[in-house]
Design a protein around this nucleic acid. Structure first.
Lengths: 243, 243
DNA sequence: TCTAATAAATGAATGACATTCATTTAGTGG
DNA sequence: CCACTAAATGAATGTCATTCATTTATTAGA
């Protein structure tokens, strides 16, 4: 009955570093959900460079090798985290509203969740949904939403994949440095591009000149590009519905 | 004059493993372009797991530490490779044809190049264009294409970024296993999704039943999704042009 | 022309990791 | 009661990228 150990207080760290002696403890210290939670917390706090098996073990107050009784590899840990994050993606709008609004809500939420976790994106690309119940649940809700909206069966998966591809790519874009497009010394050689960069930077400020804190939020270049692409996809894909 | 050493025959590997003695050699053995070429060749032949500094040094017939006289880090090597790949992206269609066709050609080419090199995608996301002349050249051509097509200045960069995000995400999708969406034992719990997956797999064969070798090429699920998303983006973004 | 600085190589550490293995202890099924 | 399995510890291992001291060659300046 793992429920007992899970319900017990202070699941990690037994306070004053009294070390556990070797051998199986009476109550199991580790389980997948604890590992997942600790990994997520660690990644959020220290970034993915800080998410090492040793650091994870330390948070959980075990020896690193103990982790391997519960996961096969570090990749496995990332899979657990990834699937957990999928449960944070907001699919609620597919229940009620119209398709356009539902896709908008879902896509923004999806991008925002993974923008903080881009190192997981390569993991997702190879992850069979069988091993990822939360991921599967998300796909089910979204698929139903597309079906209800009148999408022909055979176009549902490609349409979702196209949106997801855009979302993952856009999540990376969020992490890019603001000045990534500064051409510096080469500016003379690239007049069109340089002008375009200047002009988009100006336009990105929604306050029309009163550039303050909101320049970070509403005016983030990544948000402008995401909005533009998403609206294009919504209208273009929406046209594929059978009325 | 590095041209001399570059023009010399057998630039890598001095045949019968006679080792170079310590100290600076009369003719430089390494330079950035040689390192780039060797890294690309190694990655293509062995994959990115095989691209280690030690393996790279071996191909170039030097000690691993010698590489650090020319690049600051492995990340630096990836940057060199990445920028080189950008020169392989086909931007030629922006010179002549109409905007839609040019974007189509460019996007397919871009995706196909990076589908083989997805480990570089996280690198690109952080790479300032200043350090990447080929990348900058590509942006210049594309920007000019958008400008000539009547795009307002301030919308050019966001539109390109949106397309690029979709392209990078789609490049990952190409690498995904074909059966990634097989829900297996959970199929009962996800009827809509399962039906959609079945149906799209059937539809992916463009020969309408005569499934042969082309099922791999034209009918790849990733291609269907890419085509669908790209056409949606082209028509959606195209609408933003000022006539 | 000598000489100091710099460039470019070698080879031997270093340190961070993930992962494995032998060992110990504790439940569990027959 | 006993063999088996599960879950810990702690001590390797092996693979990496990276650094450092050292050696040799080229080059710029006096």
């Amino acid at each position: 009955m793992p429920a007992v150990s899970a319900a017990r207080g202070r699941p990690t760290s037994n306070g004053a570093g009294q070390k556990r002696r070797a051998g199986r403890p009476s109550a199991a210290v580790l389980d997948k959900s604890g590992i997942t939670a600790a990994a997520l917390e660690l990644a959020s706090r220290k970034g993915y460079e800080g998410l090492t098996m040793a650091a994870l073990a330390k948070v959980l107050d075990v020896a690193p090798s103990a982790l391997y009784n519960h996961v096969a590899s570090k990749q496995d840990v990332l899979l657990l985290v990834e699937d957990h994050l999928m449960s944070l993606v907001d699919v609620s709008a597919f229940a009620a509203g119209n398709w356009e609004d539902a896709v908008r809500t879902w896509a923004w939420s999806y991008r925002n969740v993974f923008a903080e976790h881009t190192p997981l994106i390569p993991v997702i690309a190879v992850l069979p949904v069988t091993d990822a119940p939360q991921t599967l649940a998300m796909y089910e809700t979204v698929s139903k939403g597309f079906s209800d909206a009148g999408f022909p069966q055979e176009r549902i998966v490609p349409a979702i994949v196209a949106l997801e591809s855009f979302i993952f790519g856009s999540a990376y874009d969020v992490t890019a440095p603001e000045d990534i497009f500064e051409s510096g010394s080469m500016a003379d050689a690239t007049p069109y591009f340089t002008a375009a960069v200047r002009s988009s930077a100006r336009d990105a400020d929604p306050s029309g000149g009163r550039a303050e804190a909101n320049a970070q939020e509403l005016g983030r270049p990544a948000d402008t590009a995401f909005r533009m692409g998403l609206e294009a996809l919504i209208s273009g894909l929406g046209a594929l519905r059978g009325r």
